[in-house]
Simulated scan of single mutants.
Amino acid sequence: MLHNIPPILPPDLLHALAAMGHGDDVVIADANFPAQSMGQRVVRCDGMSATDILEAVLTLLPLDTFVDDAARVMAVVGQPGSIPDVVNEFQTIIDNTADNPAKIATVDRFDFYDIARKAFVVVQTGEKRLYGNIILKKGVIA
């Protein structure tokens, strides 16, 4: 048992987050995301929402301050200006929890997939809301 670690984070995810270096990406994905075909490392958190996992991860993971897009989500296909409720919730969590709050950037669906394929780890959640996917870029602890 450890202090101050959110209990919803499984040991495999804690190991991946600790092993990540500055500039590495972590994908927190919804239940529909093709995680197994995207990521070299996949950690499953089936019973958890993407928002709960995001909040827990941000208590441990610093966001990168050297880039403009430390947090990225997938644009709604056919409605690029639309912002799903889950994305608004992601922004609120980042604003309230991240050590370096960042404005969420939006990327095209296939660009999002390309970034996810190169990510250090993909976290598959049980999130059922569409577009409940976010990519975080790890920063440094000063």
Rank of each mutant, 00 (worst) to 15 (best):
residue 141 I to V: 12
residue 70 A to G: 11
residue 16 A to N: 01
residue 74 M to P: 05
residue 38 M to K: 07
residue 56 A to Y: 00
residue 123 V to D: 01
residue 41 R to P: 00
residue 128 K to N: 09
residue 65 T to N: 12
residue 7 P to K: 09
residue 56 A to M: 03
residue 53 I to K: 12
residue 104 I to S: 08
residue 20 M to W: 04
residue 129 R to Y: 01
residue 133 N to F: 08
residue 70 A to E: 10
residue 51 T to E: 13
residue 119 A to S: 15
residue 30 D to Q: 05
residue 22 H to C: 13
residue 34 P to T: 10
residue 52 D to T: 08
residue 112 F to E: 03
residue 104 I to A: 06
residue 90 F to I: 09
residue 34 P to V: 05
residue 8 I to K: 12
residue 102 A to P: 05
residue 90 F to G: 09
residue 43 V to F: 04
residue 92 T to P: 00
residue 37 S to I: 04
residue 85 D to F: 06
residue 36 Q to A: 06
residue 43 V to K: 07
residue 72 R to H: 00
residue 4 N to G: 03
residue 141 I to M: 11
residue 35 A to R: 10
residue 77 V to K: 13
residue 95 D to V: 02
residue 16 A to D: 06
residue 25 D to K: 11
residue 47 G to E: 12
residue 63 L to S: 11
residue 97 T to F: 03
residue 126 G to A: 09
residue 90 F to T: 08
residue 93 I to K: 07
residue 54 L to I: 12
residue 35 A to C: 14
residue 59 T to I: 01
residue 4 N to D: 12
residue 49 S to W: 02
residue 65 T to P: 00
residue 61 L to I: 09
residue 37 S to W: 00
residue 127 E to Y: 06
residue 112 F to H: 07
residue 57 V to S: 03
residue 121 V to Y: 02
residue 80 P to F: 07
residue 54 L to P: 14
residue 65 T to E: 14
residue 67 V to R: 15
residue 135 I to F: 11
residue 29 A to M: 10
residue 31 A to D: 04
residue 83 I to D: 06
residue 27 V to I: 15
residue 8 I to P: 02
residue 84 P to N: 03
residue 128 K to E: 09
residue 3 H to I: 09
residue 110 F to Y: 13
residue 103 K to S: 14
residue 92 T to S: 14
residue 84 P to M: 12
residue 4 N to S: 12
residue 122 V to T: 14
residue 64 D to L: 11
residue 22 H to N: 13
residue 122 V to F: 09
residue 89 E to A: 13
residue 105 A to N: 07
residue 79 Q to K: 13
residue 37 S to Q: 13
residue 90 F to K: 01
residue 98 A to K: 02
residue 17 L to H: 04
residue 15 H to I: 03
residue 113 Y to A: 05
residue 14 L to E: 05
residue 79 Q to V: 00
residue 120 F to Q: 05
residue 68 D to C: 10
residue 109 R to W: 04
residue 81 G to Y: 08
residue 41 R to W: 10
residue 32 N to Q: 02
residue 12 D to F: 01
residue 126 G to Y: 08
residue 127 E to S: 08
residue 32 N to Y: 11
residue 133 N to I: 06
residue 15 H to E: 13
residue 116 A to E: 02
residue 29 A to S: 14
residue 6 P to N: 13
residue 69 D to I: 01
residue 70 A to L: 08
residue 30 D to Y: 05
residue 62 P to K: 03
residue 119 A to K: 10
residue 138 K to W: 01
residue 14 L to Q: 03
residue 18 A to V: 04
residue 17 L to F: 04
residue 19 A to S: 15
residue 55 E to L: 02
residue 142 A to P: 13
residue 109 R to A: 07
residue 124 Q to P: 01
residue 104 I to E: 08
residue 36 Q to F: 09
residue 44 R to T: 13
residue 5 I to A: 07
residue 117 R to F: 08
residue 76 V to L: 02
residue 15 H to F: 07
residue 121 V to L: 01
residue 111 D to A: 15
residue 126 G to T: 10
residue 126 G to R: 04
residue 48 M to S: 14
residue 52 D to L: 04
residue 112 F to A: 10
residue 86 V to N: 07
residue 95 D to A: 14
residue 80 P to W: 05
residue 111 D to C: 00
residue 55 E to F: 00
residue 56 A to P: 09
residue 34 P to Q: 05
residue 104 I to Y: 07
residue 47 G to C: 05
residue 18 A to R: 14
residue 130 L to G: 02
residue 107 V to W: 00
residue 103 K to E: 11
